[in-house]
């Protein structure tokens, strides 16, 4: 099968490869780039374990072709930690927002998209915002609290930074 050259900027690092048209973005991320924090939990775009940001928008990378991401920016869980944990990562730790951890990266990326677009979501908005991501362990309650934690933390740091 013919291959195409692509370059995707993943977490700020250009990643190039020769790929078949049909290669899924999630397989490029996991297999070609060895970024295994992005997980695969279904094959029908329903579980959200593979959620990444594509040019800042949450997408399920099992339903995006790698060639579609050519020349674009992808953010994965591995890019979330800067000098310190991202407030969402901290929130999941503080609020016991994970158990087995398998849905967590996708859940954090969806929550990132939510908070980027709605910095102060109420409970209903958070539940709606993560409703495309399945978690079988937590009953979602502490995930909601984790996102609330992150939202508050981001607000606090912005208000401190603004003074």
């Amino acid at each position: 099968m013919a291959k195409k050259s692509i370059t995707i900027n993943i977490n700020g690092t250009p990643r190039s490869g020769e790929v078949e048209d049909r290669l899924l973005l999630v397989h490029f991320i996991r297999d070609d780039c060895a970024l295994t924090g992005t997980h695969i939990g279904c094959d029908s775009t329903h579980c959200g374990a593979c959620t990444v940001l594509l040019d800042g928008t949450a997408v399920k990378s099992c339903t995006v072709l790698a060639v579609q991401a050519d020349g674009r920016e992808v953010s994965t869980i591995e890019g979330m930690e800067g000098a310190a944990l991202h407030p969402l990562q901290e929130g999941f730790f503080e609020e016991h927002g994970l158990q087995c951890g398998f849905c967590t990266p996708g859940m954090i990326m969806s929550a990132k998209h939510l908070l980027d677009n709605n910095p102060k979501p109420n409970e209903e908005e958070i539940r709606c915002g993560i409703s495309g991501n399945l978690c079988r362990c937590t009953g979602y309650q502490n995930i909601v609290k984790s996102v609330q934690y992150a939202s508050n933390k981001i607000q606090e740091s912005e208000s401190v930074g603004g003074e």
Partner: peptide, 10 residues
């Protein structure tokens, strides 16, 4: 155990 999971390093 959370540290590795929240970083995608499980």
């Amino acid at each position: 155990e959370d540290n590795r999971f929240i970083k995608g390093e499980g």
